[in-house]
Design a binder for these strands. Structure first.
Lengths: 175, 175
DNA sequence: CATAAATAATTCGATATCAAAATATCATAC
DNA sequence: GTATGATATTTTGATATCGAATTATTTATG
């Protein structure tokens, strides 16, 4: 997540109230000259993303991790046993500033899940590696992570899932 | 967005490097016992959302606003001329803590785009209203906002857009 | 009516992020 | 080989967010 509390019970942050359709309705009334359907598409994508994010975050919390931590742990895990990445590699992979990565690694290192090792080829650089504990945690976590996602998507057929992938893949960044 | 700098030129935050397919490939190699396709679906939804978010944020920056500001301004605008919402209403609508809303309103009020007025029915409460300047800005902004979204979605047909909406609407939160 | 519980907004303390500066090291050009 | 520029990471300062505490007011209960 982003605010370092794991199983927070009291919630200051409420659920979204207005439905997509009521929002469109308002815009049609206020600005009949504008076709608001692009808003609906974007809004639906963001909404779905939020729901999924919330679901997987709850699972990560069971391991005492937030989005920040699991992101790093799982990225390292999928490189394979013993593989390493530099802090810059990790930052690039998750579109984060390197300073944010320093902070994430500090926390994970303090928890004993990753280790900073020196890069033998470049004394400026570091290679980040999962500890045995981190590897084991990742290995356990990835199974429930995928199961969680499966559950969140269970109202969709396999066919519909691949339709979603295919359709959304057409939205391409300009960079 | 979230860090109050408008046309930042230097970028510490890089673009995502690894493709969805290469990530799946890694997981298939590391954990052949797990079918990673749910990851692909979620990932594609998040990725598309990020691309869209980036695009519309660039447009908002042209008005000196970030995600936080435009969210409030547009939510107020679509209620209609002269309409008001309480800070709590706004927080609920955009899934934010009320303390975060206090902060957003502080900034917008300082810029002269919204005004805090007292609630005649409840002396605890406030009613937030767009100033004339805020209303005019919102009215101009919503047009380019929708145009921006349209452009970002231009690789999709109308039919494909409504397919996306229909498919994603099946992903429902558990709350 | 008086008191207790609920609600509205703000303030406060903590934290994750970013951009920019600082530090260290590498690579290249001369 | 020395200087200049590029690169890797951390440090620093600013800010937006959250959760909890605070203050003020309303609603409900006896």
């Amino acid at each position: 997540m982003s605010q370092g509390k794991i199983g927070s019970s009291t919630k200051n942050v409420p659920e979204k109230t207005s439905t997509m359709e009521s929002i469109l309705e308002q815009w049609r009334r206020e600005r009949p000259d504008i076709d608001p359907s692009p808003m609906a598409v974007c809004g639906q994508i963001w909404r779905a993303g939020e729901i999924l994010r919330k679901g997987v975050t709850e699972n990560w919390a069971n391991y005492g991790l937030d989005l920040a931590g699991s992101d790093v742990i799982l990225t390292l895990r999928r490189q394979g046993r013993g593989a390493t990445l530099s802090p810059s590699d990790l930052a690039k992979d998750m579109m984060l500033s390197t300073s944010a990565m320093t902070n994430r690694l500090d926390r994970l290192e303090k928890r004993g899940l990753v280790k900073r090792t020196t890069d033998p080829k470049d004394r400026r650089g570091l290679r980040i590696i999962l500890t045995d504990e981190g590897f084991a945690l990742a290995d356990e976590m990835v199974a429930t992570h995928v199961a969680t996602e499966e559950k969140l998507l269970s109202t969709l057929t396999k066919e519909e899932c691949s339709q979603i992938r295919q359709l959304l893949s057409k939205i391409e960044g300009a960079d």
